[in-house]
Design a protein around this nucleic acid. Sequence first.
DNA 1: TATTGTTATACTCTATAACTATA
DNA 2: TATAGTTATAGAGTATAACAATA
Lengths: 169, 169
Amino acid sequence: MPESDSELVEAEAEETAGEPLVRRSDQLGLGPLGDYIGFHLRLAQDASFRNFVRHTGRRDLRPGRFTALLLIRENPGITPMGLSRGAGRDKSTITPLLRDLERQGLIERRPVPTDRRSHVLALTPAGQTLLDELCEHAARHDAELDEIVGIENKPAFLAQLRAIIERLG
Amino acid sequence: MPESDSELVEAEAEETAGEPLVRRSDQLGLGPLGDYIGFHLRLAQDASFRNFVRHTGRRDLRPGRFTALLLIRENPGITPMGLSRGAGRDKSTITPLLRDLERQGLIERRPVPTDRRSHVLALTPAGQTLLDELCEHAARHDAELDEIVGIENKPAFLAQLRAIIERLG
DNA sequence: TATTGTTATACTCTATAACTATA
DNA sequence: TATAGTTATAGAGTATAACAATA
């Protein structure tokens, strides 16, 4: 799906809000899709994301911010173009994302002496703090997934997901 | 992400367009997410969706339309509210979706004698034809997923996805 | 009172194309 | 010429809130 991408969540929120996220009723017929892997991948990803949001208590969290912060932390010296390629998103989507993160004081841009067109991205202390917090939520969320899948099945399950990721585009 | 949802793809397009969908470079570090099920679910769903789009040749295909058409076909007598609950989306998102499908001549609305607030949805012949075509693409796409996962592993893999779907929200 | 469906409004994510300033 | 990044623009998808008609 030009739909998902390479991230998980996002940051920043004003308020937490209740929990009215619409819940699928699942009493409907699905036809041929009832046994499709692709369809279930989609449903599982949806459920997983909702659970993550539940953990963070921030319903405004959406893909992009979290991944951006994480990729910046894990890849020192990364540039906006590197982020674009790493996240699998067009560079034009990176500009407003970084603008917002910078405006919120979560990241900063540093000049690159060797190429004055570009700049290096880095987390500010506030960005580190927020990312740490999100990572804790992510860890708790994923522990639930581990439990559901069964820790003994996790390696095989992950291997199958990785196979899909690598062998499809 | 309040991000994904309960569908797979969508319908309608003007032209096919090249294939410039940005491709993840994957040479970047992922930190703690490197072993997270949730993260890999997201990547796999992303890859799967891109592959589906590749099959259909319609890059404008996105979640929503396809599911709507499918749920309408598979659940005779369904109403907009039923669709909303089945798809796990707020009813306010259903209105414009149905408006577009109707405008394209893919669905029609029929009055409900017992409740004049509502109406029953049904595919037109054109809607059936389009849905059939999309289902063929979906079948070929999912056959690739079967091959990647390995047909002998499919039942267990699907069971794990279903466990995630059912046990998380 | 509660529900169905619509409308108004807004925000996120995404992309293409055109532009600039460098390389 | 080609690349890094920005801006302008556009279109899905989603949601909340308020509303009219009906139950």
